[in-house]
Design a protein around this nucleic acid. Structure first.
Lengths: 126, 126
DNA sequence: CTGGATCCTGGTCGATACTG
DNA sequence: CAGTATCGACCAGGATCCAG
C-alpha cells in the first residue's frame, strides 16, 4: 500500500518514536503475543487461567504484561467485587484488530521458519 | 541435526522454539525491521550506505544485525574483491517474502498507534 | 571501507516473598 | 486469587579501538 506520509521523511522506522518501531518494541515483548493469542482464542480469561495456559510465565511478567496491554488500550480489565477477587481480561476491539497483522506474522513464520533454520545450520551458502 | 518439535499442541506461541515466537524475537531486534525496510526500498546497498540511511545505528549493531540476517538467509552478501573492499547487501527472496507481514504491522501501527497513545495518556478507563 | 574485539551500562526477565 | 516489591542474572545495545 502506498504511504501517505510526506516524502521528505517517510513515516517509517527511521524516526525515533515512529509508530511501527514502537509497535514492534511492544509486541516483541516476550509474552505479549502469547497473551493476545490466547485471549483471541478464549475470549475472556482470569489471571490464574492465563497463567495456567502460558507455561513458563512468572507472576511478575504476566502482571506487568497485562498492565502494559491494558494501558495501551488493547485489553479490558473487569473486576468482580467479591472475595477473593476475580479479575477478567479480554481483548478490546483495538486489541482484536491486532489479530490480523499477528496472523500474518504467524503464517510467515510457519511457512518459512524451516528455511531460516536450514540457513542457520548450513555452513556455506548454496 | 535439527531436532523436531513434537506437534501435539498447536504450532503457536506456546512451545519454546515455536516459529512465531522465534520470528518475533528476531524482527523485534532494534534495527532488523529498519534494515529490511531500507533494503526493500533501495534494492541493494553497501555497508556505509546502510549506515548513512539509518541514523543512530552503531557500527557494531549494524554489523551484527547484518550478520544475523545473512545467517538467517534473509540477506545476501556480495563482496567485490577490490581494495578497499566493497560489500553489498540485498534481500533474498526469503527476505522479500517478509515484506508482506511487515507491511501488515506497519499499516496497523500507522492506523492505530494514535489510539494507543491516547489510551496511554488518558488516566481513567473510558 | 568493512567489521571484528573489547568493555561497559541499562533494561528485561525470573525467582521469591509479601500484601490485600 | 490477584497483584506488588525486591533482588539478581542475563543480554541487547552502544562506544571505542584495532585489524584486514
Amino acid at each position: 500500500m502506498g504511504d501517505l506520509v510526506p516524502q521528505g521523511r517517510r513515516g517509517d522506522l527511521f524516526d525515533p518514536g515512529c509508530p511501527t518501531r514502537q509497535l514492534l518494541d511492544r509486541i516483541g515483548g516476550k509474552w505479549v503475543a502469547m497473551v493476545i493469542t490466547v485471549l483471541a482464542e478464549q475470549g475472556e480469561l482470569r489471571f490464574a487461567e492465563l497463567e495456567r495456559r502460558m507455561p513458563g510465565v512468572s507472576h511478575k511478567m504476566l502482571s506487568s504484561t497485562l498492565q502494559q496491554l491494558v494501558a495501551d488500550g488493547l485489553l479490558a480489565r473487569r473486576v468482580e467485587p467479591v472475595v477473593p477477587p476475580r479479575v477478567h481480561y479480554q481483548l478490546t476491539s483495538l486489541g482484536r484488530s491486532l489479530e490480523a497483522p499477528l496472523a500474518a506474522i504467524r503464517e510467515w513464520a510457519e511457512a518459512h521458519m524451516a528455511e531460516v533454520d536450514l540457513a542457520r545450520t548450513t555452513p556455506g551458502p548454496r
